[in-house]
Amino acid sequence: MVATLMLGASASARAQGVRPYTVVGDAIPASLTGAPGDPERGLKIVTNRQVGLCLLCHSGPYPEERFQGTMAPTLAGAGTRWSEGQLRLRMVDAARISPETIMPPYYRVDGLTRVAPGFRGKTILTAEQIEDVVAYLKTLKN
């Protein structure tokens, strides 16, 4: 596959504190922070319904968590299905892969409509949180 290089974040996004990243194919190979994330913190983000919001739509290997979603594939095995870079792009801005996806853009502030004032100009997760979640999802092997 021919690798395509795209500059991730636009100038206005950079001004609002979104770090630039490089998309290669369907992945962002490099850490947004330049450092690996912490999978234990990632697990806490994923299962927190106010922070990660993941279990609203996804289910996962959490028998103790009630009320998991069925709108999206299970997180179980995500680390087998996807590489670290693929997971990162799917977190950052999954619409780049599939424009019709319902996966929210966790690290994008551009191209959104009527964002509530308290969230305007802010990403759903910070770069550090994205890296923690990516590090955690990598551990979800089949």
Binding site: L56, F67, Q68, T70, P104, L112, T113, A116
Partner: peptide, 28 residues
């Protein structure tokens, strides 16, 4: 049909395309 908000969802995403699926524990 318009995507709105930080989560970038439309009414349609849930109530047409995913009606009957579960949002957390709740059937849409």
């Amino acid at each position: 049909a318009r995507r709105q908000g930080q989560l970038n969802l439309s009414c349609q995403n849930c109530h047409d395309d995913n009606a009957g699926q579960k949002l957390a524990g709740v059937e849409l």
